[in-house]
Nucleic acid binder design. Sequence first.
DNA 1: CGACTGATTGATACGTCTCAAGGATAGTGG
DNA 2: CCACTATCCTTGAGACGTATCAATCAGTCG
Lengths: 242, 242
Amino acid sequence: MSTLQSTSHSATSAGHARWNAASRATQALNSLCDTDEDFRPLQPFGTKQRFKRNETIFNEGDEAKYAFRVVSGVVRLCKHLPDGRRQISDFLLEGDFFGFLESGEYSFSAEAVKEAVVICYPTRQIDRAAEGSPVMRKRFLELLAKRLQDMQEHLVMLGRQTAMERVASFLLSLIERSGNSDTILYIPMSRQDIADYLGLTIETVCRALTELKRDRIIDAPNLHQLRLTDGDALEILAEGES
Amino acid sequence: MSTLQSTSHSATSAGHARWNAASRATQALNSLCDTDEDFRPLQPFGTKQRFKRNETIFNEGDEAKYAFRVVSGVVRLCKHLPDGRRQISDFLLEGDFFGFLESGEYSFSAEAVKEAVVICYPTRQIDRAAEGSPVMRKRFLELLAKRLQDMQEHLVMLGRQTAMERVASFLLSLIERSGNSDTILYIPMSRQDIADYLGLTIETVCRALTELKRDRIIDAPNLHQLRLTDGDALEILAEGES
DNA sequence: CGACTGATTGATACGTCTCAAGGATAGTGG
DNA sequence: CCACTATCCTTGAGACGTATCAATCAGTCG
């Protein structure tokens, strides 16, 4: 996961007020501001924009005039096949960049998973800023390197792992990304989104989750919340020791 | 496919003497020299190295001291799981770069698919050269952008396409990469390599190829050569219109 | 020529998908 | 605030595609 994910893992110092949307947005803005000085030169060129759940930010093939950064909410990057099949290549959380390094046209679509606020930067300005600042170049390259690594692991997952391994890995990566070590985790995307990220059907994802609950490895207070009961067991499942 | 693939598609102006290894190597050197002036500043730092079939160039986890460029032969990038499963993320042909932008340790292994000659550049030198040359930076970014796009398509393939669609897409990408419009194509990698690239088993790959032959869409003079009989049909199969 | 490695083919098993139904959740309007 | 409704999630039964296992075949190298 994580496209050009900022290394500021949104500095979630404590797991408070996590389920309050307004509070989360504020938190995001703070963390974007105080941890990402390297990107501050871009600030004057950014325009804030809001997208509703499932709204399209841009489509594959659109002219790539802007690059983006997530302020709050969640965004998915995906490819749609003509017959309706869909593959999600990444979920983006607050602080993550996306739509960079597109040559002419976007090579994928970006859509809001849930109400999202993003900052748009004209690509021209990004290019210019990067040209002028070795530090920013370095930061962007780090984000790219991370993204390439994540995609390689995604390839392994889709090409060589079982349904249960994929679901377990996915949950672990969500936990890692959430940054905090709470045992409770907020899952912002739908089951269909998860399925399309993992290259599975929604039913298969459900069954895997059900099995994890049955085996007391996880436990779900509600649809979008999840408590990790046995992290070690989950890691074992993710690596295929069963 | 194509990791940091040079945009000089090895300028195969004619399809002559393709199956003669010595001739191909010469061809490669020529095309590297006369089309890639932008990278010439790297030349003094490069060391040539030769690898035998299936020899390891570096392993995942090795310290990433060098970046590489293929002079001749074919290289595969892959991840190995502890239980022996393997996912190939890319095949590299002459002119392609690999091992760039690795942070500290390589995040995948590189192995020679067939006898290969590569040039090794100390990453320090690469970084310095890129710092000093906006043109080279631009070229590297273009290669990265291409690589990201290819990986996204690979994700779609592994996550959402059937075995036949994957095999058909793979053959088409090989044809496209070979650059020439001959109807005959050289396939340098083994069936197992293809399977591990496509996230399939060797048997499934075989059966798909057999079916293509049966339907007179392709035709195979021998194991590693292939004639395209009906390119349109192959493209239809690749996009899942069946 | 003979042995080895890699490729092909067949029979069967298994995992995931598909289709269908029911249940939970969230959004909407009264 | 509640009822209504649409959407999403879960579960089950069965179909289907690909994996697995085993045998044979072809190609390559000594």
